[in-house]
């Protein structure tokens, strides 16, 4: 639906359906494409299935008694099949979960190391840690603190830093602006832009549509488990429905 069709997209989702338990179907044949190097936004109301889509992509459905009932996911053109969460991280996916989910009782530095468990090379871990501390100076000052004592914004930065520790090809973020002050949201948005500029492909799930559309090239709108709209972010920004429903205009 989006992209110029020449290069293999980093992520392709084809007809993905997901069910929780015996009867609750949450996704009904979702198609999404995330071109290499792009920042793609995924919008939609609460309960549309955004988080479920991320869980399905990253192998976390079993934690919620969910399973894929149809369709397929391709990472760099190769089907992921039934790969588990660990295998998917090794293949270049990393995520910032909804609600940050940092390890509150571990230190900032240990949280970052936890994001790098799939990286064998200790020197590489040290290098990436240095880069992340350079990008998030607040974290560097607090590297020995228990992460639970950080502010909400700092915890979100830690969650992003932790996800970047595995040097992912594709970074998935679930509502990184949730519960943060506008000024902090702005900082987070800047970091996401920087991550994209550094060559990591980004899939950004957001309620804050204005922020998401301002930093993404493409966007999809998910409604009741189906893709309702999709296209270049500039087009969606000008769409009357999107404006009415998500941007608070009209």
């Amino acid at each position: 639906m989006v992209g110029d069709g020449s290069a293999t997209p980093v992520l392709e989702v084809r007809g993905l359906s997901v069910r929780y338990g015996p009867a609750l179907t949450v996704l009904h044949g979702v198609d999404i494409e995330v071109p290499a190097g792009a920042v793609v936004a995924l919008l939609g109301p609460n309960g549309a299935g955004k988080t479920t889509l991320l869980r399905a992509l990253t192998g976390l459905l079993p934690f919620h008694h969910g399973r894929v009932t149809g369709g397929e996911v391709l990472l760099e053109g190769k089907p992921v099949g039934r790969a588990n969460a660990t295998a998917l991280v090794r293949r270049g996916m990393a995520q910032v979960m909804e609600g940050r989910r940092i390890f509150a009782e571990l230190t900032v530095e240990e949280n970052l190391r936890a994001g790098a468990v799939t990286v064998r090379d200790r020197r590489r871990v040290a290098e990436v840690t240095r880069d992340i501390f350079a990008a998030f100076p607040q974290l560097a000052h607090r590297r020995g603190y228990q992460a639970g004592y950080l502010s909400g914004g700092e915890q979100q930065m830690l969650a992003i830093g932790r996800a970047l520790m595995s040097s992912p090809k594709l970074l998935l973020l679930d509502e990184p602006s949730l519960g943060l002050a506008p000024r902090i949201t702005e900082q987070i948005a800047e970091r996401i832009v920087a991550v994209g500029a550094a060559g990591t492909t980004v899939l950004l799930v957001e309620q804050n549509a204005a922020m998401a559309l301002s930093i993404s090239e493409f966007a999809y709108v998910l409604q009741a488990g189906r893709v309702a709209m999709g296209g270049p972010a500039t087009v969606l920004r000008d769409d009357p429905d999107v404006q009415k429903l998500y941007l608070g205009d009209g």
């Binding site: 990253t58 192998g59 976390l60 934690f63 588990n84 969460a85 660990t86 998917l88 991280v89 090794r90 990393a94 995520q95 979960m97 989910r101 940092i102 390890f103 509150a104 009782e105 571990l106 240990e110 190391r113 936890a114 994001g115 468990v117 799939t118 932790r162 595995s166």
Partner: peptide, 23 residues
Amino acid sequence: SRTGLGMRATALDQEAAAAQGIS
């Protein structure tokens, strides 16, 4: 050790640990 850290992370939040690639 990475395994030891992984175990501590698992103890705190299994799903978040899995999301980092910890088995």
